[in-house]
Each structure stands twice: as C-alpha cells, then as structure tokens.
C-alpha cells in the first residue's frame, strides 16, 4: 500500500502509467460517445410529450453529471494535495478545473436551448438551472484564485482550500435552491419525464454518460501529462525524454 502511495507521489511514474492508460480511455470515449449519440439521436423513440426535443438530454445530462463530479474530484485532489503533499494531485486538480467549467457551461447552455421548446423561453429560474449557474460561478472562482497568485505553491494550496470549502457548500446550496424553488413555484410545468424513462431511452443515456466520463478521464490524463512536463522541465528524466525524442 505504502509503496503504491509513494509511487503515486512521483510525476515520472504517473507520466509512464498514464501513457499506457491513455489510448484505452480515448478508444472507450470515442466508441461510447459515437454509439450513444447515434442510438440516442436516431434510434431511441421520441418522447410522447416533448417529441424529438427531448433528445438534447443525451448531451445535457452527461454534462451535468460531469460538472458535479469534476468539482468533487477536484476537492478530493485538493485534500490529497494538502494532506500528503502529492504534487500530481494538484496538477490533476488544476487541469480538471477548466474542463469542469466547460461542462457546467455546456449543461447550462443545453438546458437553455431545451427550455425553448418546453418552457417557451431561454431561461427560467428553475432549481436545477439555478444551482448549475452557481456551480459555474464556483468553478470560475477556483480558476480565478489559482490565476491570481504569483507563487505556484500558494496558488495550489489556496485553490485546494477553496475547492474543499466549495464542495462542502455544494449540497447546502443545492438543497436551499430546491427549497427556494418550491416556495416560488411558477405556473409552468417542469421536466419530470426523466424518472419513469423507458429502457430504450435510458440505455443510450447511460452509454453517453459513460462516454463522457471516459472522455473526461482521457482529457485530464493528457493535460496532466503536459503539465507534468511543464512543471518538471528542469528534472533530469524530462530532459532525457526530450533529448531522446529529439
């Protein structure tokens, strides 16, 4: 166990192992997203109430899933970095943040587009949209804080603390927004067709979610690899690598 954790500390080891893992995740991401989107967009039956417009769910829901789980994994990486001083954890967290913000934006945007046929408007202060918007601001805060420090070490630690504070707050924000929404219930119907979803709609959604996750892992691994090279550029193994490839 300790040997494994010690190995995790080393960027070199991470670089080596990620090289072997990366192709698998790329292949999985490409295959799953391709199968999921073709199945979801072309073969899944149309919704009896929303028609074909419900198909945006195949982008909206995976993006929303990722938006939330990236924040949580960012906070976990922050905790690992603060407790065990594992630099790779911080690099992973730093590389995840823009992707998480992008996923939050995609889910917000697709939610807005979906709002046009269902609600008749681009934006509604729907509970889910509102908490997504707040999550988006939380992401922006973490990214901005990391960018504001001159020293990389304090930037990393500050971003870790903020991610942890944010992750404690996310459930509180979520439940209070839900409460607020039920108090101010507007007179339109909400999208509640997701619970009793038939199998033919649900399976492609699951495939898409898995595909998005593989995509996220692949992108994060790739970005972390280049970040390792950047941060460790004065280490001997990186120089050897650069010299060997030249």
């Amino acid at each position: 166990m300790w040997a494994f954790i010690n190995k995790l500390r080393s960027p070199k080891w991470f670089y080596a192992i990620s090289e072997r893992l990366l192709p698998w995740f790329w292949v999985a991401a490409a295959a799953l997203i391709l199968v999921g989107s073709v199945w979801g967009l072309a073969f899944a039956p149309a919704d009896y109430q929303q028609g074909n417009s419900f198909r945006i769910i195949y982008v909206h829901v995976p993006a929303a899933f990722l938006a939330q789980s990236i924040f949580v994994s960012m906070a976990v990486c922050g905790l690992v970095y603060m407790v065990w001083k594992i630099k790779v954890a911080d690099m992973v967290a730093a590389m995840m943040a823009p992707l998480g913000a992008a996923m939050t934006f995609i889910s917000l945007f697709s939610g807005a587009v979906w709002g046009v046929p269902t609600w008749g408007t681009w934006w509604m202060w729907d509970a889910r949209l509102t908490s997504m918007l707040i999550l988006f601001f939380l992401y922006l805060g973490v990214i901005a804080l990391r960018g504001a420090f001159a020293s990389r070490d304090s930037a990393s630690r500050a971003a870790s603390v903020l991610a942890m504070v944010g992750v404690i707050n996310i459930p509180i924000i979520k439940y209070s927004v839900d409460w607020w929404y039920t108090l101010h219930q507007p007179a339109t119907f909400t999208v509640t067709g997701r619970v009793g979803m038939p199998m033919e709609m649900w399976v492609p959604l699951l495939i898409m979610v898995l595909g998005f996750y593989s995509f996220f892992i692949a992108v994060t691994l790739m970005r972390t690899r280049s970040e390792i090279l950047r941060r460790e550029s004065n280490k001997r193994w990186v120089r050897d690598l650069a010299g060997g490839e030249r």
Partner: peptide, 27 residues
C-alpha cells in the same frame, strides 16, 4: 484570508464569496 496577500483582491473576493452566500440569502 485567501485574498489578503493579493494586491487587487477586492473583485476576486466577491467572486469567491458571493456563490457561497446564496443559502444564507435564501433563508
């Protein structure tokens, strides 16, 4: 505390803190 060391921490501070204020505002 996170922004005290930064020379222009003011706007950043509100960006960090305001989303966390929302539950208090709601209740």
């Amino acid at each position: 505390a996170l922004t005290v060391g930064l020379s222009r921490g003011g706007v950043l501070l509100s960006l960090l803190v305001l989303p966390l204020y929302i539950p208090v505002l709601i209740f």
